[in-house]
Simulated scan of single mutants.
Amino acid sequence: MELDGYVDRLRSQFAAISDVAGEDVRDVAERLVTPLESTVRLVLLEALAAAADEITLDLAPGSVHVRLHGSDPEFVVATAPAVSTPEPPATPATTPPPDPDGPVARINFRPPEHLKSRIEEAAGRDGLSVNTWLSRTVAAALDQPAPGRPANERSRGGWFG
């Protein structure tokens, strides 16, 4: 997706507004528009990334990501893989099975850069989006008994659960 057309439209709008105001305003507007171009691009990219996040909520477990190709954004859509896997072992009767179509929640996760790279590599190897990979990995970890706990007792999450 090229942003040049949008940035040019904004530039022409500034020019049209400054023409009405007079010569002094036109000179100031011309001097301001060029430095604002990078800021406008950044704001547009942020809006596209926010839109991709909202779309991802509707696509879960698929996802949409915005990547830069040169200076232009590009959308990458990852759909949930259609892999037939054997049925997982039954969950204990006290825990209802997860609802794949259930509500989706957002968590702001900020791993160290080296861990983020490893997460992205692992998700790529599995052909999954980072979000899907993290969701599956966390679900699997929570289904494992915690060290020092009986095998029939699942982790309840949290530091003290």
Rank of each mutant, 00 (worst) to 15 (best):
E30T: 10
A80M: 10
R106A: 07
P147H: 12
A29V: 04
F75S: 15
L3K: 03
R11W: 08
T39E: 12
L3E: 03
P98W: 01
V43R: 11
P86Y: 07
G127T: 04
T137Q: 03
F160H: 13
V138E: 02
F14Q: 09
V77H: 13
V40M: 05
I55S: 07
A50G: 10
E74Q: 15
V40R: 02
P111C: 04
L115D: 10
R41N: 06
G102W: 01
R67A: 12
V64P: 01
P150M: 06
E87S: 10
N131Q: 06
D72S: 15
D8G: 13
Q144T: 15
A51L: 10
A78D: 14
E30M: 06
V130Q: 01
L44N: 04
D19G: 08
L10N: 08
E54H: 10
D8K: 12
V20N: 08
A122C: 06
G70T: 11
P73N: 12
G62A: 02
A141E: 15
V76M: 14
P103R: 09
D24A: 03
E120R: 14
T79V: 15
F109D: 03
A139Q: 13
L134N: 01
P112S: 06
P86L: 07
I17P: 04
N108A: 09
I107E: 05
G124D: 10
V77L: 15
F75Y: 15
P97D: 07
P150G: 08
D72F: 04
P103C: 05
A78C: 13
A52Q: 02
H114V: 14
H114M: 05
R67G: 11
W159Q: 14
L36S: 11
A16N: 15
A90I: 04
D126L: 04
A90T: 11
V40L: 06
L115M: 10
F109I: 06
T91P: 11
Q144I: 12
H69M: 12
A52V: 03
V28Y: 02
T56Q: 00
P92Y: 00
L115T: 12
V104Y: 06
F109T: 05
I17D: 13
A21L: 04
N108V: 10
A90R: 08
G124W: 01
A90H: 03
I17M: 13
L44E: 02
G62W: 01
L134W: 00
E74N: 14
R11F: 06
